[in-house]
Simulated scan of single mutants.
Amino acid sequence: MSASSALQAACAAYRSAASFERESLEGVPGHSHAAEIRSEYRTARELERFCSSLAANVVNRARREFAPAGTRLDIDDTKEHERAGLDIREALRTGNIPDIDRLWSSLQRHYGGDSGRDLAYQQAAQRIIRGFWLNRRSVVQRTASAVVLRLRVTSEGCFGRSTRKVSYYSYQNAAECLEGLAAFAGKAGQPALASGLLRINVHNIEYSYRDKQHHPGLDIVFFKDAWEFKFSHQVADDLMLFVGEYGAAFMQETD
């Protein structure tokens, strides 16, 4: 039995129990009944919500399963439904059960194997490029000990404390750049660096002016309106190779 068929059977069983209660307890006010008889409309709406939730879980599984460990795929649910020919509302309207298996098969064909892995790295490279505003004309600051990139992150004071926190408008930019860097680190064989970057939660991190975090091959220095990433020369060289391989097309578009 499919999941949606099971839900329909459960609805029928519940309706039968509610009817039995009303037949057995005649004269009891409606608001006192233990089981509420639901309209066909409400049952149909619940079935649609259930199927939509199931389809969303399938796409979420693809985001994780077809990307390398520690990364994710940016996949648009609506586009994937269209690609698979899945229209949940129309299927239910015509008395059919939405083919969620067909959606999964479509995701497997499109993102399975190297396709999902390469796309995840391309998306990671794009996050890095956007975060550091990189393009082919960028001048990267190189010192004797490090290569320095700056990520614009505005901050605000923490109430009742001397520390600062990331402002609401910088959450997404900071989180996406960190995710991109973590994906790069995993690809470059730097699991400790990847793990350290993923542990930075932009929603609750607090820091003081010029505080510093140490990671393998990377120091992060916190300023009021920016985070300064100081990469070792080796990690920086690997990062530039990663961006060049997976982000060249995107960088050309942003020139």
Rank of each mutant, 00 (worst) to 15 (best):
Phe159Lys: 12
Arg161Pro: 00
Gly186Asn: 15
Asn173Pro: 00
Arg150Asn: 14
Arg150Met: 10
Thr154Pro: 00
Val166His: 01
Ala183Val: 03
Val148Asp: 12
Leu178Tyr: 03
Gly186Met: 11
Thr154Lys: 11
Leu151Asn: 08
Leu181Ser: 07
Ser162His: 02
Gly157Met: 13
Ala174Lys: 01
Val166Gly: 01
Cys158Ser: 12
Ser170Phe: 03
Thr163Met: 06
Thr143Gln: 08
Leu181Thr: 03
Arg161Cys: 07
Ser167Tyr: 05
Tyr171His: 14
Gly160Arg: 09
Cys177Asp: 00
Tyr171Phe: 14
Arg161Asp: 07
Tyr168Gln: 14
Glu156Gly: 02
Asn173Ala: 06
Glu156Tyr: 11
Val148His: 09
Phe159Met: 12
Ala146Met: 02
Ala183Arg: 03
Leu151Ser: 05
Glu179His: 12
Arg161Tyr: 11
Thr143Asp: 09
Ser167Trp: 04
Arg161Met: 10
Tyr171Glu: 06
Leu149Ala: 07
Glu156Ser: 08
Gly180His: 03
Ala183His: 07
Arg161Trp: 12
Gly186Trp: 09
Gly157Trp: 08
Phe184Ala: 02
Arg164Leu: 11
Asn173Ile: 04
Cys158Tyr: 12
Ser167Phe: 05
Ser155Tyr: 02
Leu178Asn: 01
Val147Glu: 13
Gln141Val: 13
Tyr169Phe: 07
Val147Phe: 03
Cys158His: 10
Ala174Asn: 01
Tyr169Leu: 08
Gly157Asp: 14
Thr163Val: 08
Gly157Asn: 13
Phe184Glu: 04
Ala144Met: 08
Val147Ser: 14
Gln172Gly: 06
Ala175Tyr: 06
Phe184Leu: 07
Tyr171Gln: 10
Glu176Tyr: 09
Ala183Ile: 01
Val148Lys: 11
Ala144Thr: 12
Arg152Phe: 05
Ala175Cys: 01
Gln141Leu: 15
Thr154Leu: 05
Ser155Leu: 06
Ala185Ser: 15
Ala174Arg: 02
Arg142Phe: 02
Tyr169Val: 10
Gln141Thr: 12
Arg164Asn: 04
Val153Ile: 13
Val148Arg: 13
Lys165Trp: 07
Ala183Gly: 12
Phe184Val: 07
Ala182Arg: 04
Cys177Leu: 06
Ser162Arg: 04
Glu156Val: 12
Phe184Asp: 01
Ala146Phe: 04
Cys177His: 02
Lys165Ile: 07
Phe184Arg: 09
Val148Trp: 05
Lys165His: 10
Thr143Lys: 09
Lys165Thr: 09
Leu181Ala: 07
Arg150Trp: 07
Ala182Asn: 03
Arg164Gly: 00
Ala175Trp: 05
Gly180Met: 03
Gly180Gln: 02
Val148Cys: 15
Arg152Gly: 05
Ala185Tyr: 09
